[in-house]
Design a binder for these strands. Sequence first.
DNA 1: GCACTGTAGATTGTCAACAATCGTGCCAGG
DNA 2: CCTGGCACGATTGTTGACAATCTACAGTGC
Lengths: 247, 247
Amino acid sequence: MTSTFAPLPETSTADLVAERLREAILDGTLRPGDRLVETDLAERFAVSRGPVREAIRLLAPEGLVVLRRNRGAVVASPSFDDVLEVYAVRMSLGALALTNAVELRAAATPAFTDAVRLLAPMRDPDVQADPQAMLEADLAFQDAVLSLSGLPRISAMLEQSARDAASFVSLLGITYDSTDHVALVQRHERLLDALSSGEPGRAVAAWQEHIRATVAEFARACPDADSARIHDHPLARHVLDATQEKP
Amino acid sequence: MTSTFAPLPETSTADLVAERLREAILDGTLRPGDRLVETDLAERFAVSRGPVREAIRLLAPEGLVVLRRNRGAVVASPSFDDVLEVYAVRMSLGALALTNAVELRAAATPAFTDAVRLLAPMRDPDVQADPQAMLEADLAFQDAVLSLSGLPRISAMLEQSARDAASFVSLLGITYDSTDHVALVQRHERLLDALSSGEPGRAVAAWQEHIRATVAEFARACPDADSARIHDHPLARHVLDATQEKP
DNA sequence: GCACTGTAGATTGTCAACAATCGTGCCAGG
DNA sequence: CCTGGCACGATTGTTGACAATCTACAGTGC
């Protein structure tokens, strides 16, 4: 195993608290609008207010909570417009990343093999049965593929947008019941094929198709967005129509 | 003025300290690799370590400092690769934002008039003589134009990337001596014209041309990047060549 | 002379108490 | 009945002290 002697994770108490809070928000224990009271959380986690405060400040730039001076923090309440924006960013930067990956001949690298391997869990029925696990496997795969770009900053932004997207699932009350896992895996396979082909255009097209399908699924499952009005949003053209404008 | 009754700035001590540190980094008082010792800073600003610590944590996600557990924070040392990445993001998301702005008929809004007004300071010889002031005026104008998209998240990301770009100027030791201010203002004017024309393609093209010129200027002035090797970087095609790939 | 271990000083991580601020409910006045 | 001021409780903002950790340097054994 190459990762056995990798640098240890640098986890402070604040990081641990932040991680717990993230989980609580993502699994629905904490719901949009809920207040995060430093004193309460400090008592529950059996630490002082310092690390808790730091943890909350850590979640703010991630978009999971919103801070208001002297009034504490509350769990964020995103709208469907946010979903469209995040996926528009994802489509745009993803295209950039994948083009770069192709130009780097990423398909021939060990990192590519690792990415291919990450698709395996998504075919596992046990994983498919657990929405949370499925979501995490999906995220891990997409992060790995997009990291093939060799662009650290852009990869980090894409990972952030992936976490945003994941948080929308719980914050908007998406129900994952009959999601078509097979189609999802197939889209990922097509993406890998396109990367192997060495044609940037094919990779970008596969990516855009994936985003389009994901947003469409979101729109169907999201109680907030009545499907009729979605197409009024200017961004809908970008993230729902397969064809994109040319410069 | 529309902003007279905007919400008051919610400035805590930590925000003030962060602002001072930002200035210190941006004007070169603090240089890449310099350590930020909480005790020292607390004493200088005449506050306790708490707010200083929080301020440093605030600068970390902005990319101005890097944190290492139990070892404090140091001022970031970006490379020219970072410049290319940031401008690639800027080109990509800017195209998205401007397309949206055109589709919203932004040219007919008061916000557009405000943006036009922001160009005036950049023609002022006094401002042009002060690189710092010129940079800020440029940033304010670009932020205003890109905000016409009506996409809050994407506008925020673009503002962040603009701050990143500004920080590179000092962190990479760019010398601003003979920058062609006239050409810069002309590019901005062309961008406004394109927005008024109502053709998304023209706005995007003007934007890409602006990014291309900016990066080229960066490459010329940056002592770190020997111009010969820049074009080896895969991103160079995107941010230096005017033509972009089609999906 | 070299590699390793142990200690000292500096610095960060954490804590608990104090001060400042906000929201709520009550009460007087119109 | 509604409006405006006031006090109280709850919560955040800030502080200084203590504990844990890191880096550098000196000392020990080979």
